[in-house]
Every structure is written in C-alpha cells, then in structure tokens.
Design a protein around this nucleic acid. Structure first.
Lengths: 143, 143
DNA sequence: GTAACTGCAAAATATTTGCATCCTT
DNA sequence: AAGGATGCAAATATTTTGCAGTTAC
C-alpha cells in the first residue's frame, strides 16, 4: 500500500512527503469522500491546518481528488479514477450521499444519467448528487 | 409586483419588512440564482450583512428559496416553485449553470432524470447540476 | 545545492451570536 | 402593547498569505 501511495505521487510529479503520504492514505483507506474537517481529525494533530489546505489544493490541481459539493454546503473530496487528469474530468459524475452513515460514494462508472434538457440548453458537464441509504447501511438496517 | 411580494411573505406567515421585500424582489426580478454576495451587492448598502444572512435563512426555512451547491463552493439561492414547502422539496432538482453568463437556472419541472443506481442503494432525493451554455447565451453567440 | 514543502504567525474573509432599539401587526 | 426584525458590536470560524526553517531529490 505504501508503495502505491508513493507511485501515485510520483506519477503526478509531486515530491513524496509525510503529509502527502498521510493524506493520500486517508483517501485510499476510506471508502467514500472526506471533508476538510474529516481529514484534519483523522490525520491527528500531526499536520498544520494550512498544510491540509495546501495539500488538498495540490491534489485537486493534479486531478488526484475532486470536490463534491453537497446540499449542506460542506465540500467533500474523493479520489478520482485514473482517467481524471489535470483537474479535468470526464463529462459526468454521480455521487451518492448516505443519509445514514454520511459517507459519500462515487458511482461514476456504474450508472449513466439521461438528462433531457430543454431546447437551447447545451450541456458540457453533469454532476448528480443522490441522497439516500447506501448498500452497506441498507444491509445492516434490514436484517 | 409589490403586491405579489407582500402576498408571498404573508402566505408564509412572515411579517412584511423592507429587507424582506427588497431581497425577495431581487429574486423575482432575476432569472436564475443569486449568491449571498450577489444579494449584498444588488441590495446596495442599505442592509446590514447580518440581515441578509438572517433573511436568507428565514426564506430557506419557509421554503421560499432553496440552496444550490456548486462545484466552486459558492452556494447560490433560487426561488422555489409553489410546491416546495417547509424547506422540503419534491424529490429531484435540476439546475443549470451557464458557463457563459454564470446564471443558474432551475429546470425542475422541465426535465426528469433517469438514474439507475447499483443494487442496494436507495435514492431519496436527486440533485442534478448541469454546466454548459444556456438558451439565452446560445442564442446570442450563434447568430 | 536547489527547489519545493512545511509550520508558525498573522491577515483577510466569512459566519454566528448577544443585545438594545425599532418596526410590524 | 407585544413580539419579532434589524443594526451594531463582537465573538467564532474559515481560508489565505508571507516568511523562515526544513526536507526531498
């Protein structure tokens, strides 16, 4: 796992530092998306808050993670798939926000939205946020 | 128009005050969504910033407006249709963010998304944000 | 060794809260 | 008249910036 982390950083022409390894490992070991606050908490008191801001910004610019705006105005971040490059993504994202465990899942390559726009509107990118109950929580709730 | 504004406030059991009339009129006279900053600017220097916060909060709670989270982390607000009540909406929203004029349009009752979730995921609410070029800008750009 | 990264301090910005005053009903 | 809304001041929270010291390559 540690090797994978270093590889991702090197592939993106980033120097391998403790904070980057730590923050990237948080994403790799967490199914779902993380908020800035989540990352600060999970990283312990080891890193300055400013470093978290700057690391997330760097990861965003490199396309390692992407931002997910949610209805409660708390931005979450999640790992991008390999085909996300240089901060640009393919033309649609599907995210699922579980009302039960509050995890955010990226379902990008699982479903495809069909959006019929009115005449005259041209779509360039589509972001879908679905709120509901995720697979894991559903399983634990209903037997 | 002034009558309509008062009616909306009264229908929602809100007292009719200058700031509420002014802020509500901004929404009624603007096709698209407004950010907190937009509202402060358009309202001129007449209202305290705190009043804008509190008025938007009140309108949100009454379901007069709803919040639209966007990828750049700037929340916008837009009028709700009549069937939005008490801060709860129907189960899907479609918003269109124009990359040209930067307006945000609500297309709620125009299109219906078809989202096929993986097994085990249960959807409760669906929010769609489409980025592209709106009808008005398309018309002005292409002859 | 050099360029880049980090932590600290501080500035800038955004949001919330308390309270006295004013306005709506 | 009474309850609610507003403005002001101030407290909090969030995000950004500058710079000196440290680390990666």
């Amino acid at each position: 796992m540690a090797l994978e982390i270093k590889d991702i950083l090197k592939k993106n022409k980033l120097s391998v530092t403790g904070s980057r390894e730590k923050i990237l490992s948080l994403f790799l070991n967490h199914e779902g998306a993380l908020s800035h606050g989540d990352i600060e908490k999970k990283a312990g008191e080891k890193f300055d808050r400013v470093t978290v801001y700057r690391t997330l910004q760097t990861f965003l610019e490199k396309g390692i993670i992407h931002a997910i705006p949610t209805a409660d105005n708390s931005i979450r971040y999640a790992l991008c798939k390999d085909d996300c490059t240089e901060g640009h993504h393919h033309d649609h994202h599907i995210h699922f926000l579980c009302m039960h465990c509050h995890n955010t899942y990226c379902l990008d390559d699982i479903v495809t939205p069909e959006i019929k726009l009115p005449d005259g509107y041209v779509a360039d990118q589509i972001d879908v946020l679905v709120e509901g109950v995720c697979k894991n929580c559903k399983a634990s709730v209903t037997k």
